[in-house]
Design a protein around this nucleic acid. Structure first.
Length: 414
RNA sequence: GGACAGUUGGGUGAGUUGGCUGAAACCACAUCCCUGCUAAGGAUGCGUACUCGUAAGGGUACCGAGGGUUCGAAUCCCUCACUGUCCGCCA
C-alpha cells in the first residue's frame, strides 16, 4: 500500500508519479478524500469514547461511595446511543478507504522510464552472443516431441489445458536445474527455505496479490488458503507482522516452489508449448533489506540471475521495465530475457523487483532503527524460472539431428 | 475426526468473585550513578498502532481472531483459529 500521509502532504508529486503507472488523478483525489473522511470520523468517535470512558470510571466511583447514580446513568446511556451512528460512520469510512487504497499500485522510482507497455522497456545490455546455426533451429515443442521430453496430451488429461508432464531426461534436467539454482543462490548468501505451497489470504494481501488479483489465483475450496503464484509470497511473508533488529538485515532467502496461476486474461497467449502453464517450477530470491541498502541488493540480485544464465551459456538481455509495464507492487523492475533461437525472440525468464516499503507496509514488516520502528524494503526476483530455462536449453543446445547437448555446469547434477 | 486443557507485553509469568490492570513480578535490554578488578550493586526508562499538539503532554484501540452482554470486560457468553495431551486414522 502507498503511504497515505505522503499522498496527503505531497499530492501533486504523488499524482505525477502514479501517472507513470496509468493511475488517474481522480482516483488519487478520491483516495485523499476518503483518508480525510476516515480521520474526521475517527476523531469524532474517539472523543465520544473518551467521554464514555471517563463517565464509566465515575460510575464505578459512585458505586463504591454509595452515591446516587440515576442521573449519571441517564447521561451515559444517552452518550452510548449517540455513539452508534459515529461508529457506523467510522466503519464505513474505513471500508471505503481500504477498498480503494489496497487497489492502488506502488509508486515507480523516479528513474523508471516512462512508457505504456513492453514496447517502451529499455534494454540495458546484452550478455553472450546468440549462437549462429547452420540449420533452422526448431522450437522447443518440436524438440520435446522428437526427444519424448514433454507429454502435453497427458498433462491435459491429468488436469486440464496448460498443464504438462516432463518425462525421463527432461524431468531429471528440471530437478538438476532446481538444484543448480539453489546451490548458486546459497553461495551468494541466500538461506534456502522449503515453504508451504498454500498460503492464507492475509499473506496474499501482504505481498499484493489480494484483494485485486484474486481471479488469477487458485483458491482451495472451504479453506482460507490459496496455491501460491510465486515463492515471493511465503518468503516475503516469513516476517509478516514482525519487527526485526537492524543487525538482522538484510535477510536473504531463496526457495524452490511450484507456482500456480490461473492466467486469467492470457487466453490464447502462448497456448503452444510450455511457456505459459498453470503450474511451473521456479527458484525465487527474496530480500528483506534496510531502506538505505535495497538498491545495492537489487543490483546484486540482478547480477546473480544474469550470472546463472551466463554460467548455463544462455544468451540474454537485461531490460529495465517502463512505468506502464511495471507490476502492481514494484517500484522498479529489471527483467532478464533469454534468447530462444527457435522462436527467434528474447523471452522473459526472470523478473527482479524492488517494492521498497509497499509490501512491508501491507505486511507490517519493520525493523528497529534506534528507538523507532521503520518499514523495511522488500525485494524479490526469480533465479530462475525453471521450465523456461529448460526450454532455453533445448532451443540453444539443439543439434541438427534434434538431439540436445547438456550445459557443462549441469553435468554434475545429472 | 472425538475428548480435555490452554492462548497475556522481547522472554518467563501474575491477574479469570467484571471497574483502582495496558496490564504485577522476574529476566532481557537502554541510559545514568556507585565501585573497582574479572564482575557485583543502585536509580530511571523500556509494547504496538492510529490520532491531537511546535513541544511538554493528551486521546483511542489492542491481553489468539471476530461477535455479544454491560455504564464499564484480559476477566462473563457465542463462533472460529491455533497450541498441548489422550484416543482414532494415516504418508
Amino acid at each position: 500500500m502507498i503511504d497515505l500521509k505522503y499522498l496527503q502532504n505531497n499530492f501533486n508529486e504523488a499524482s505525477a508519479k502514479l501517472q507513470k503507472k496509468g493511475v488517474d488523478s481522480e482516483t488519487l483525489e478520491n483516495l485523499q478524500n476518503l483518508f480525510k473522511r476516515l480521520k474526521g470520523a475517527n476523531a469524532k468517535l474517539e472523543a465520544a469514547k473518551a467521554e464514555q470512558n471517563s463517565m464509566s470510571k465515575l460510575f464505578g466511583q459512585y458505586m463504591r461511595e454509595g452515591k446516587d447514580i440515576t442521573e449519571l446513568k441517564a447521561k451515559v446511556d444517552a452518550n452510548k446511543e449517540a455513539m452508534v451512528p459515529l461508529q457506523e460512520a467510522a466503519r464505513e469510512a474505513e471500508e471505503a478507504l481500504y477498498a480503494v487504497a489496497l487497489a492502488v499500485p506502488n509508486f515507480p522510482d523516479d528513474s523508471v522510464p516512462a512508457g505504456t507497455d513492453e514496447e517502451d522497456n529499455v534494454e540495458l545490455r546484452k550478455v553472450l552472443e546468440p549462437r549462429v546455426f547452420d540449420f533452422a533451429p526448431k522450437e522447443h515443442w518440436a524438440l520435446a516431441e522428437e526427444n519424448g521430453w514433454i507429454d502435453f496430451e497427458r498433462g491435459v488429461k491429468l488436469a486440464k489445458s496448460r498443464f504438462s508432464v516432463l518425462r525421463g531426461e527432461a524431468a531429471r534436467m528440471e530437478r538438476a536445474l532446481i538444484n543448480f539454482f539453489l546451490d548458486t543462490n546459497a553461495q551468494k548468501g541466500f538461506e534456502e527455505l522449503c515453504v508451504p505451497f498454500m498460503n492464507n489470504a492475509q499473506m496474499l494481501q501482504g505481498t499484493g496479490q489480494l484483494p485485486k488479483f484474486e481471479e488469477d489465483l487458485f483458491k482451495i475450496e472451504e479453506e482460507d488458503l490459496y496455491l501460491i503464484p510465486t515463492a515471493e509470497v511465503p518468503l516475503t511473508n516469513m516476517y509478516n507482522d514482525e519487527i526485526l533488529l537492524a543487525d538482522q538485515l538484510p535477510v536473504l532467502m531463496t526457495g524452490y516452489t511450484p507456482c500456480f496461476r490461473k492466467e486469467a486474461g492470457s487466453a490464447g497467449r502462448d497456448t503452444r508449448g510450455m511457456i505459459r502453464q498453470h503450474q511451473f517450477d521456479k527458484v525465487e530470491m527474496v530480500a528483506i533489506a534496510h531502506p538505505d541498502k535495497s538498491d545495492d541488493i537489487f543490483e546484486m540480485m540482478v547480477q546473480n540471475a544474469s550470472d546463472i544464465l551466463a554460467a548455463l551459456g544462455l544468451p540474454h538481455r537485461v531490460v529495465e521495465l517502463c512505468g506502464g509495464d511495471l507490476g502492481f507492487s514494484a517500484a522498479r523492475t529489471i527483467d532478464l530475457e533469454v534468447w530462444l533461437p527457435g522462436q527467434n525472440k528474447y523471452r522473459e525468464i526472470s523478473s527482479i523487483s524492488n517494492t521498497r516499503d509497499f509490501q512491508s507496509r501491507r505486511a507490517k514488516i519493520r525493523f528497529k532503527d534506534g528507538k523507532k520502528n521503520r518499514l523495511v524494503h522488500t525485494l524479490n526476483g526469480s533465479a530462475l524460472a525453471v521450465g523456461r530455462t529448460l526450454i532455453a536449453i533445448m532451443e540453444n543446445y539443439q543439434n541438427e539431428d534434434g538431439s540436445i547437448a547438456i550445459p557443462e555446469v549441469l553435468k554434475k547434477y545429472l
